[in-house]
Amino acid sequence: MDDEAVFEAFFTEAYPRVVAMLIHYHGFREPIAQEATAEAMTRLVPRWAKVEHPAA
């Protein structure tokens, strides 16, 4: 699997979990949680090659 495919798999798995965490543990409203998660994932893309344990 290339880096892009690995990131896509990570994104697909992690995005809903991160959104749910922001809503349930931090009280974010859903649209804000989605926006914050999307922003975090966008910032992660250029650093993806350096990530050793994405599920951590």
Rank of each mutant, 00 (worst) to 15 (best):
E39R: 14
H26N: 12
W48P: 04
T12W: 06
H24Y: 08
L22D: 01
A38V: 04
F10T: 05
E30W: 01
P16T: 04
R47T: 13
A9G: 09
Y15A: 13
R43Q: 11
E13Q: 09
G27N: 00
M21H: 14
L22A: 05
V19P: 05
A14L: 07
T12P: 06
R47L: 15
E35D: 11
A38D: 11
T42V: 10
M21A: 14
A49G: 06
P16Q: 12
R17A: 07
R43F: 08
F10C: 08
A33H: 03
V45Y: 04
A20L: 05
V19G: 02
E35G: 07
V45M: 12
V18T: 09
P16K: 13
A38R: 15
T37G: 05
V45K: 15
F10K: 01
T42G: 09
R17T: 03
I23Y: 06
I32D: 12
T37R: 01
A38W: 06
R29E: 13
L44F: 00
K50L: 15
F11S: 08
E39A: 14
T37I: 02
F11H: 10
R43M: 11
A33F: 04
M41Q: 05
F28V: 01
A36Q: 09
R29D: 13
P31A: 10
V19N: 01
A36Y: 03
F28S: 03
M21Y: 14
T12K: 10
R17I: 07
T12D: 10
H26R: 12
E8M: 10
R43P: 05
L22I: 00
F28Q: 07
P31L: 05
A40Y: 10
H24N: 14
V18M: 12
P31V: 01
H26I: 01
K50S: 14
P46I: 07
R47A: 15
F11L: 11
L44C: 09
H24I: 02
E39H: 11
Q34G: 08
R29T: 10
Y15K: 15
A38Q: 11
T37Y: 04
L44M: 14
I23E: 14
F28R: 10
E8Q: 12
W48G: 00
R47K: 15
Q34S: 03
T42H: 09
H24M: 05
H26C: 13
Y25C: 03
P16N: 11
I32F: 06
M21R: 12
A36S: 08
Y25E: 13
V18C: 01
H24D: 13
